[in-house]
Design a protein around this nucleic acid. Structure first.
Lengths: 198, 198
DNA sequence: CGAGCTATGTATAAGGT
DNA sequence: TACCTTATACATAGCTC
């Protein structure tokens, strides 16, 4: 009701690559970019069959990591190469399972995304099962991040889907209706000052 | 001078995030995206004052890494966190098994595994147990609501465990330490931009 | 290969709700 | 606080040299 002002969104602004001063923006930017970075890493991995590990330590020393197949195995090899002067380049011969090996690993995570896509496009998902809880057990801390990202995407799709249904049946549905199923504070307070809740 | 035809560039095409088949493209894409990934990592580091390490193993097993301040120091801290569950170093107290602050080792997956329970306990949102393996299209509106709410809560649970409460006051770190950007682990010819894939 | 181009897909900075 | 919208900066696929 108070929007008469012509405050049109500015759209993306150009920013310089130096430390963000505003704590508020810092938090937002950190989240967004960290997510984006992990996404890019996942894509590089999927597209090229490469193994990628990303570790991020926030200024507050919280640890975030992404890894395919797993950060540890990659780090392991990284360290091995790093301290093993023996024969860095002269790998005897690469068995043809190189690429496949990677892809296989990738498949696990990509499968989740794929299922999601399948749900969206065709309506025949039931067969393969839609067991989101299964892969979790196999996922490591690092991969959890990616899983979460997938959840967000799925949520949007569900919302879209529900929207269609709602429109069709003319029922009024509020997804995040106040007092409804909304889960406001989830238990943790985020104060730029404070930290955890342990 | 042989472009007499108005062969206009196609511009960027949309691609599927699946393994690239053409070796030629694979190579090119790997190079470009790896560079892009490192760039993003550098920006995240610079903008947010975070420490970031990225390790990439090409299908041919070449190693590429980016690290601020250095991949090793970051890896070091990552491993410390990851493999010392009983190390009181960063453990404020002994939370149950349901995480809160740091992502100490093993209990992590279990926590997620019980997300439905957890959700129930804290918010009773999921309606007392939602079936994640059902195809979306067979769900009704109400169920969609619950489903989405569950997703949202789960997302937050996961996030809570892994993160947030990030940056407090920053630290004065040297992000772009000279010579700390990228490194070649093999001995190939190395350009700050990247190396050949072999 | 790596560098440069063009057109276009994506990631995101701001600001609103 | 989180998410949505808008406008735009930025990354990059397909080609050429």
């Amino acid at each position: 009701m108070k929007n008469i002002d012509k405050k049109k969104p500015m759209g993306r602004q150009k920013i310089e690559i130096k430390k963000i001063e505003k704590k508020n923006n810092l938090q937002v930017t950190f989240s967004k970019r960290r997510t984006g970075l992990f996404k890019k890493a996942a894509q590089l991995s999927a597209l090229c069959g490469a193994e990628v590990a990303v570790i991020v330590l926030s200024p507050a020393k919280n640890v975030y990591a992404f890894g395919n197949p797993s950060a540890d195995s990659i780090i392991d090899r990284f360290l091995a190469r790093n301290s093993s002067p023996s024969n860095p380049k002269t790998t005897p011969s690469s068995p043809p399972h190189d690429v496949l090996h990677s892809c296989e690993a990738v498949g696990r995570l990509e499968a989740v995304k794929e299922r999601e896509k399948t749900v969206e496009e065709s309506k025949e998902v039931s067969g393969g099962g839609f067991r989101w809880d299964e892969p979790i057990d196999e996922l490591g801390l690092d991969e959890l991040e990616q899983y979460m990202a997938s959840l967000e995407v799925l949520k949007k799709k569900v919302r879209t889907r529900a929207d269609e249904i709602a429109m069709a049946s003319a029922s009024s549905l509020n997804f995040f209706a106040p007092g409804g199923i909304a889960m406001d504070q989830n238990g943790f307070d985020f104060n730029e000052d404070g930290v955890c809740l342990g």
